[in-house]
Design a protein around this nucleic acid. Structure first.
Lengths: 335, 335
DNA sequence: TTGTAAGCGTTATCAC
DNA sequence: GTGATAACGCTTACAA
């Protein structure tokens, strides 16, 4: 059943059927009803490929994310998909892993499927050097590229993110002001936001005129257990802080497990702050104080921006939201 | 840049270009090289829509899931996407929520995009009555339908699932045999697997010839907090069991929180078993003993079955895997 | 308001 | 081996 069949049955031309299909107003109510009736009774569905060919769009957005089973990224994908569907866009999901090579390859693949735009979910898509990020700029020559939680400046690239540096700085300062200066910062990666968070941490010390010791910032990219074990080992070597700030909730939970293992009392002897406000934070004991980086809001933001871009409107290349701290039971100071 | 441009530049016909593109063998090595060279230098990419129109497929599988931010479903989507990509299929993701109406609507929508098949992720797609499931059978008239973790019998519908009833029965019996008969079962929903788990629980009592008391099975569909609060209230009314079995890890964590709130010792005074082996289970304290329903394996299974179906091979309509119990710190008996 | 006909960029079936 | 040419099913000028 195609548009010709419908046109025959309805006794009109295919152009008229097409007009009805596309809600064109220049069709008399009578013909429209006739055509609709035929469509209804024959259960006609337009062929999406043919339509795509004619319009050069299938109203599909490509979403790239490193790992959609990661709770933070999974939530982001969920919010974005929901928003896009509200605009009648479909989502082509592609999980790339964390290797630059595969990220590039899959981005290329998605573009070859002629998506209308691409959303890169997670700051891990933004590498440290401009050359390494050229794959993003290249893609942006073809379709709009939105980066969620990362920043890269290029034509046709739009970023929706949270002010992680500022937030981490604020949190750190809260402790420094309370004269708790022995803070351990645990980051996971050198992604854009990873770097920004670390910067914020360092800036707090700088601005407060306090010197950072060595080994006060570490990077760990393992499981909860790995983090715990690392911290236990470290404590055995005599290095213990009374505050641990982390760049994600999993690291923070690793820290909680470490405290549990060594009988360190939270929050009296050790305060811990997570990041991302993920569900993990309410599973642990004590429940985790964590930075809420307004993921849902950022996702809505990203989609809104994208829709405007696709409409042809001018929009800012960078939209930033600020974060909140969700205070639960691993902290006692006020932020 | 299209196939005509390439053919002109290479001094061949479009048919030849198409042959090169599709790895057709009836092209002399010389012409092939010439064409490839032109493609390379012009950066030609075939138009996926035109190809879709011609072949009536864009090698895309629709994945429906209620909520891709749910940690269990998110993992499933992740595994499935990864597998499908290995077969050069793309994934159109669509989150439907839990309402039958929207599930139907989105399934229809995905079909109208002419996906090659549909995978329903999560047993919540299988409703309790045959009439309500007719939307699945209808879809299966158009393309193969795979159900992950649910079972519904119909032409062209294939199911990959875990033997939840058997597993729950086995776990329950382990306790009954150890003369722990005061077990609370907490389920979440009346989805296919929800019902099967509950059945398994009941069957264990039946087969052991032990009578189930009233209120020994409850259904809770709320947050961790809700579960905790409910159990606290229940305990205050004097109803306490020494074992809690649940149909998912979140419910189990709610139970852990309840025990924590009331100072009930785990596992000495209360043993708890979760279900799904999600990451949440290693965040809580004590860490959760939980049923590993082999999600990754089931997902691989589902995709393998689908590929066979698309090839035209005969495959069984139902593939079942059995589960394991992951013993951590909320239990002390042997399963 | 409606119809005709020319694309859109492939694949596939023929001839040669 | 290679090249015309007819599908594929739609959108959209342009005509009427």
């Amino acid at each position: 059943m195609n548009i010709y069949d419908v046109s025959k049955r309805a006794g009109v031309s295919i152009a008229t059927v097409s007009r009805v299909l596309n809600g064109n107003e220049k069709v008399s109510e009578k013909t429209r009803q006739k055509v609709l009736a035929v469509m209804e009774e024959t259960g006609y569905t337009p062929n999406a490929f043919a339509r795509g060919l004619g319009l050069d769009t299938m109203k599909t957005i490509g979403i790239l994310c490193a790992d959609s089973s990661d709770s933070f990224l999974a939530s982001a994908v969920y919010y974005i998909e929901r928003e896009l569907r509200g605009y009648n866009y479909d989502v082509l999901l592609c999980c790339t892993g964390y290797e630059l090579e595969t990220k590039q390859k899959y981005l290329e693949l998605l573009l070859s499927k002629r998506v209308d735009a691409v959303i890169l979910v997670g700051s891990n898509f933004v590498e440290t050097t401009k050359e390494k990020n050229s794959y993003i700029a290249d893609a942006a020559k073809r379709v709009p590229v939105i980066i969620l939680n990362g920043f890269f400046e290029a034509e046709n690239v739009y970023c929706a993110l949270c002010d992680d540096a500022e937030t981490m700085c604020r949190v750190t300062k809260s402790y420094l002001k309370a004269e708790k200066t022995d803070i351990l910062y645990i980051g996971r990666s050198f992604s854009y936001s990873g770097i920004r968070k670390k910067e914020g941490f360092m800036r707090a010390y700088q601005e407060m005129g306090i010197k950072l010791r060595e080994n006060q910032m570490i990077m760990l990219n393992g499981t909860i257990q790995d983090t715990r074990d690392f911290l236990i080992e470290r404590a055995k070597q005599g290095i213990r802080e009374s505050v641990i700030l982390t760049s994600d909730d999993e690291l923070a939970i690793g820290a909680i497990k470490y405290a549990g293992a060594l009988g360190i009392k939270i929050p009296d002897e050790l305060e811990i702050v997570g990041y991302n406000n993920s569900k993990l934070g309410i599973c642990c004991e004590p429940e985790l104080s964590t930075v809420d980086n307004k993921l849902e809001f950022s996702c809505m933001n990203a989609v809104t921006v994208l829709m405007k871009v696709l409409e042809g409107s001018q929009v800012p290349a960078k939209t930033m939201v600020s974060a909140d701290v969700i205070v639960r039971n691993t902290t006692k100071i006020c932020f």
